[in-house]
């Protein structure tokens, strides 16, 4: 068992996500940075879909009431066991009574804490991920609170030896200014040529309105091609007849402050969507903090698929090193 001494700012149980229920209006949830999530699970010998803890901006303080094997990966939140610094991206042995805590975040936005055996919470619609809006999944459908006690699942295999690490060149890298690759499309026909150019050329600043639902950006207004609004859409030029929103899609309500929809997002609505963040770059997006900047870079579908292959090759390399 793991006792929550301090919950952090928003710490939730997440796995690979609740996939297959999009048509019911259920977003997938799941780890925002799947790369770090997966690396943490690999470092403790878990199944790739085992549930972990995802902490945002402020790490939790956890008391282990049993011996355990853990790994911490993702943003640079310097971890400590009983006050002593321990390394990130590394297999760690924990003794009963040890307390895991974190120093202030240095880089990145989210850190993943994997425990051999996984965090044991009930599976809801195929997943252990927390979706707080409806109180589904995770630990009682909500972020952790002080005093919660988490169960650890059965181990499915041996863990790598203590000290096994993901080499530095394979770890997530962070920056205060970021390039995020997008495929233009969806209703981008609504943008004027100038707005499209502007969207792809300016630095967008992440506002404090940035969480698992989505990130809102500040920049410059984007104009739409004038039209008589079609029946059923609504009167604002940014309104469309309500439609589905992909994960990673970028919408522009009223032409100001674009919003990138992420893993706990609404699945549809009536705002024009203009582009979609490619799946590999959602990991990076999930590690960007308020007030950092993003530049959206257009890529083709083939380039997006190539990026998936590169990411999978990187994960395969990690698997080779660990096993």
């Amino acid at each position: 068992m793991i006792k929550v001494l301090k919950p952090g700012l928003q710490t939730t149980v997440q796995d690979n996500g609740r996939n297959g229920y999009y048509a019911l209006g259920m977003p997938p949830s799941g780890a925002m940075d799947k790369f770090s999530f997966l690396a943490a699970n690999l470092l403790v010998g878990n199944d790739e879909n085992a549930a972990v803890l995802e902490a945002t901006y402020l790490g939790p303080e956890l008391e282990f009431q049993t011996d355990a094997v853990i790994a911490i990966a993702g943003g640079e939140f310097p971890p400590k066991v009983n006050g002593q610094c321990v390394p990130l991206w590394t297999t760690l042995a924990i003794r009963e009574g040890d307390v895991l805590s974190f120093d202030f975040v240095k880089q990145g936005a989210r850190v993943y804490i994997a425990v051999a055996g996984g965090i044991e919470v009930p599976v809801k619609m195929g997943s252990r991920s927390t979706y707080t809006l409806c109180g589904i999944g995770g630990f009682e459908g909500r972020a952790l609170q002080k005093g919660d006690v988490l169960a650890i699942g059965e181990r499915t295999g041996p863990s790598p030896v203590e000290g096994t690490a993901v080499p530095v060149y394979l770890r997530m890298k962070f920056s205060k200014s970021n390039e995020i690759r997008v495929v233009m499309g969806l209703c981008s026909y609504r943008l004027t040529e100038e707005a499209r150019r502007k969207f792809l050329s300016i630095d967008w600043t992440v506002t404090p309105d940035a969480n698992r639902v989505g990130y809102r950006f500040k920049g410059e207004p984007l104009d739409f091609v004038p039209r008589k609004q079609p029946f059923g859409a609504g009167s604002d030029p940014s309104n469309v007849t309500d439609l589905g929103y992909p994960i990673g899609s970028i919408q522009v309500p009223s032409g100001i402050e674009p919003i990138a929809l992420l893993h706990d997002a609404v699945t549809g609505g009536g705002y024009v969507t203009i582009a979609t963040i490619i799946s590999t770059d959602l990991n990076k997006m999930g590690q960007i903090k308020s007030n950092e900047t993003v530049r959206f870079v257009e890529v083709t579908l083939d380039e997006a698929i190539e990026a998936r292959k590169e990411l999978n090759a990187k994960l395969d390399e990690i698997k080779q090193i660990i096993s």
């Binding site: 901006y57 202030f104 975040v105 404090p208 308020s290 007030n291």
Partner: peptide, 9 residues
Amino acid sequence: VISEVPGVF
């Protein structure tokens, strides 16, 4: 007095 989280003060 240290801010534990990043944000707007």
